[in-house]
Design a protein around this nucleic acid. Sequence first.
DNA 1: ATGATTATTTGATCCAGGTCAATTACTTGT
DNA 2: ACAAGTAATTGACCTGGATCAAATAATCAT
Lengths: 192, 192
Amino acid sequence: MEQPPLEQLFHHFEQYIRLSDELRTALALKLVFKSFPKGTLIQDANKVGSYSYFIVSGLARGYYLKDGKEISEFFPAENEWCNSPKSFITRRKDIYYLDAIENTETFCLQVDDLVELFDQFPEMERYARLSMGTVFGHLLERIASLRFSSAKEKYDHFMVTYQNIHHRIPLGMIASYLGITQETLSRIRAQK
Amino acid sequence: MEQPPLEQLFHHFEQYIRLSDELRTALALKLVFKSFPKGTLIQDANKVGSYSYFIVSGLARGYYLKDGKEISEFFPAENEWCNSPKSFITRRKDIYYLDAIENTETFCLQVDDLVELFDQFPEMERYARLSMGTVFGHLLERIASLRFSSAKEKYDHFMVTYQNIHHRIPLGMIASYLGITQETLSRIRAQK
DNA sequence: ATGATTATTTGATCCAGGTCAATTACTTGT
DNA sequence: ACAAGTAATTGACCTGGATCAAATAATCAT
């Protein structure tokens, strides 16, 4: 196997904080490189999600089951963390499954190790706060977009916010993400 | 005027971190007590929202305008922070207005002061990270609830998550929060 | 208290998008 | 390359909730 590209992850951190050599070393010791082939389950809703995965390459999906159907909720891609947020924070089970839409390479970090890092490196707290702020913004955007009245408006908004990766996500998943049926989405796409 | 009830705010902090005397003093110096009579604007979307308000008593509302109509987005109440999240973080204008649904008493904190606190007190970073986690969970809940199929389901979910304050929020605001018309909400309420 | 303003309810009509069903593309493994 | 499974499209029909309109109830200022 290749040398895992830790530099990519470090670069991500440095968008928020300056990484000391000590912190680099500590991170390198705790991160485990892990690959998920396309279609594989990354996180099972029946288990506590004690891991967070930094995606080096590939594309994942968070979803839950409603009336037996998979409802897609988010699509973490390269340079984003992928986890079951509530489960990771509260250390309890939550409703979210995660799976790999594409072959996905990740660095895996255990919640206990993260907590240790928080205790040892105050700048990690800062990183967490600032990067959460980014995700926070996305969530607010998402909430606003979900209330766009028409299916077309929702789809248009999706195409803008996910312009880099929308073509990598199957239609059915996009439909459930938008809260519309795939038939409707298919028709919206047709009439362009 | 009464002595502002700083203890209430300190108590809130202590749900996440232990407050040193130094941090208490620093907070006390930076927080400004401010009241908003019912109906008053707390934050104008045409200005950068450089303040965050900790609500001591009362009830507020975040909303934005869509096609000239007010769309309610969140209802911060006692012991919660009230701000225009994206504007506060990015220091740019955002779409959100905030107003007081009831007479509302707050402690006001300026973003620059908060940044100073982050630099001086690492435990403030931790507080921010942990309390953001709480709000994060609420947002995810909210996103899930917005996709409940029927208007009735959405309303039922609202009644559960806002069980303590739902009776204090006018029907029209609840309707826009749920993304349905007030007529529909009125009918749902009638048929119980 | 009283009129004026604002919020809520109730009724009638209509359409966007859901459901059900069948057909046509794509994938994927052998 | 082919069969089997999965994903996307297309068609016909129907319903939940939107819209428009008007009546009633609640709140507020004087």
